[in-house]
Amino acid sequence: MRPFTKHTGLAAPLDLANVDTDMIIPKQFLKSIKRTGFGKNLFDELRYEDEGQPDQSCERRPLRHDFVLNQPRYAGASVLLARQNFGCGSSREHAPWALDDYGIRSIIAPSFADIFYNNCFKNGLLPIVLDAEEVDQLFAEVDAKEGAQIDVDLENQTVTSPSGAKFEFVVDQFRKHCLLNGLDDIGLTLQQEESIRRYEEKRMNDAPWLFLSREQ
């Protein structure tokens, strides 16, 4: 996994609460068997006027000009400002894959849905929870000045606003460690092979019916 340490980038404000994963990447794009290529269909229904299809070029599709990512001033944004309960709904990891493929590195919101939040960390994306007032301030600053950049520092757990205001955020230490070092957590878990085997042995003794073959 690509590590995440520090990132400074153009911020785009998505001023909508309860953005669900169906909005982030609609179902017709989940038919892919790859992890890449979802960026052009990120927020497909919010971004384009027509219904998108898998494997279709998006270059000539009619854009919804009022959508934030279609505004020229936010072209190339890599930090997404969002509202409460971002990423609710389906567990599809295609949502963080689409954000990543588009070029988003960090999402800042007052709250996230659990599964989406967790999925981000597996893909080198940093979701950051800040107080609603702090998020409001970031929205206001980004709106006020074209080209406004936000600085995200995972090591020190801080977000710096375009005007220089610093906000601290909380992150689980294990997730932070994995993200800073770009660690594959399957490899880490497999280092605990002996503990897993020990657990299985004990469990097999206590609850043998859980270990029967399913071939029937």
Binding site: R92, I115, N118, N119, K122, D185, I186, T189
Partner: peptide, 9 residues
């Protein structure tokens, strides 16, 4: 529910 990375895990 879990994401695909966790399915693999």
């Amino acid at each position: 529910g879990i994401g695909t990375s966790e399915v693999e895990h």
